[in-house]
Simulated scan of single mutants.
Amino acid sequence: MSDLVSQRPTRIVVDLDALADNLRAIRGRVGVPVMAILKANAYGHGLIPVARHLQAQGAGQFGVAFVEEGIALRRAGITVPILVLGGILGRQAGQLIEHDLELTVSSIDKLRKVEAAAQALGRKAVVHLKIDTGMERIGVHSETCAPFIEAAVASRWCMLKGVYSHLACADDPGSAMTALQLERFRAACAHFTRLGAPMPIRHLANSGGILHFPDSWLDMVRPGILLYGVLPDPQARPTIEVRPALELLSQVVYFKVVHAGRPVSYGATWAPPADTRIVTIPLGYGDGYPRALSNRGQVLIRGRRLPIVGRVCMDQFMVDLGPDGTAYNGDDVVLIGQQGDAAIRVEDLALQADTIGYEILTRLNERIPREYRGG
Rank of each mutant, 00 (worst) to 15 (best):
M1P: 05
S2G: 14
Q7E: 13
R8D: 12
A20W: 02
D21M: 07
N22K: 05
L23V: 02
R24T: 10
A25Y: 03
I26L: 05
R27C: 09
V30L: 02
V32P: 05
K39A: 07
A40T: 01
N41D: 15
Y43H: 11
H45S: 10
V50T: 15
A51C: 09
H53Q: 13
Q55D: 15
A56D: 13
Q57C: 15
Q61P: 00
V64P: 05
V67D: 01
G70T: 03
A72M: 10
R75S: 06
T79N: 13
L85I: 14
R91W: 13
Q92A: 11
Q95L: 15
L96Y: 00
I97L: 06
L101N: 10
E102A: 14
E102W: 13
I108D: 02
K110E: 13
R112Q: 13
A118V: 08
A120W: 04
L129H: 02
I131L: 03
M135F: 13
R137W: 07
I138R: 04
E143L: 13
E143R: 15
A146I: 02
E150W: 02
E150N: 08
V153Y: 03
V153K: 06
C158E: 06
K161P: 01
K161W: 07
K161H: 15
G162Q: 01
G162I: 00
S165L: 09
A168Y: 01
D171Q: 05
D171V: 04
G174S: 08
G174R: 07
S175V: 06
F185K: 04
R194K: 14
G196H: 12
A197C: 11
M199T: 12
P200A: 06
R202N: 09
R202D: 08
L204V: 10
S207P: 02
G209D: 03
S216R: 03
S216T: 15
L218N: 02
L218Y: 02
M220L: 15
I225E: 03
L227K: 01
Y228E: 02
D233Y: 00
T239H: 12
E247M: 14
L249E: 14
V253T: 15
F255G: 00
G261W: 12
R262V: 15
Y266P: 00
A268G: 14
W270S: 03
W270D: 04
P272Y: 12
T276G: 08
T280E: 12
G288C: 06
Y289K: 09
Q298F: 13
V299E: 09
R305F: 01
V309L: 03
G310V: 05
D315F: 09
D315V: 05
F317P: 02
G322I: 07
D324A: 13
T326W: 06
D332A: 15
L335C: 07
Q338G: 02
D341N: 14
I344K: 03
V346S: 04
L349Q: 08
L349C: 10
L351Q: 12
L351P: 00
D354P: 00
D354M: 10
I356F: 11
E359D: 13
R363W: 12
R363L: 14
P369K: 12
G374W: 11
